[in-house]
């Protein structure tokens, strides 16, 4: 319980901070509003998840790899964003979507672990292609 409690609380803390700092704070809220929004979003998320878990519960536990394809294709996307010097447009989101779809489609004919690799490798290849394609354009540093 205690391990799960700390892990979930940390996750909720990270989630709320990300939501408020990067989605809502741009409208520059006051102190009071930030606290209100924080409490509101925490309670709302917990309530929604409680309802979902209460409905699907207790059934078999196969959730770990459920979004495996999405995670696998997010690795090259986040790495690309973090490592390259320039600002990127819509490419990461699109490539993540393509990678996940390739993985999910390949799930039909391949084992689920192969499909995770398929997602990862296709996303990697797309990013390499995208990088080479843009090499000329981004040679000069952006302002």
């Amino acid at each position: 319980m205690i391990a799960m409690l700390t892990a979930s609380s940390s996750e909720l803390h990270g989630w709320t901070s990300l939501l408020i700092k990067n989605v809502w704070l741009e409208k520059s809220l006051t102190d009071k509003q930030i606290t209100q929004y924080r409490h509101l979003s925490v309670w709302l998320l917990a309530f929604i998840l409680f309802v979902i878990v209460a409905i699907v519960f207790p059934s078999s536990f196969s959730l770990l790899f459920f979004f495996g394809n999405l995670y696998a294709s997010l690795i090259p996307a986040v790495m690309y964003i973090l490592i390259t010097e320039h600002r990127t447009g819509p490419a990461p989101a699109i490539i993540v979507a393509i990678g996940s779809v390739i993985g999910i489609v390949s799930h039909l004919s391949l084992h689920s672990f192969f499909s995770i690799w398929a997602s990862f490798l296709s996303a990697c290849l797309l990013f390499i292609a995208f990088y080479l394609f843009n090499l000329q354009k981004y040679k000069k540093p952006m302002e």
């Binding site: 998840l49 979902i52 878990v53 536990f61 964003i81 990127t88």
Partner: peptide
Amino acid sequence: YYHTFILMLLFMGAYALMVQFYAAG
């Protein structure tokens, strides 16, 4: 596009939290 990406991360975060809650349940 930054907003799209953040929303995707938030969605994944909510999903991960749901898995945690499921395990605790």
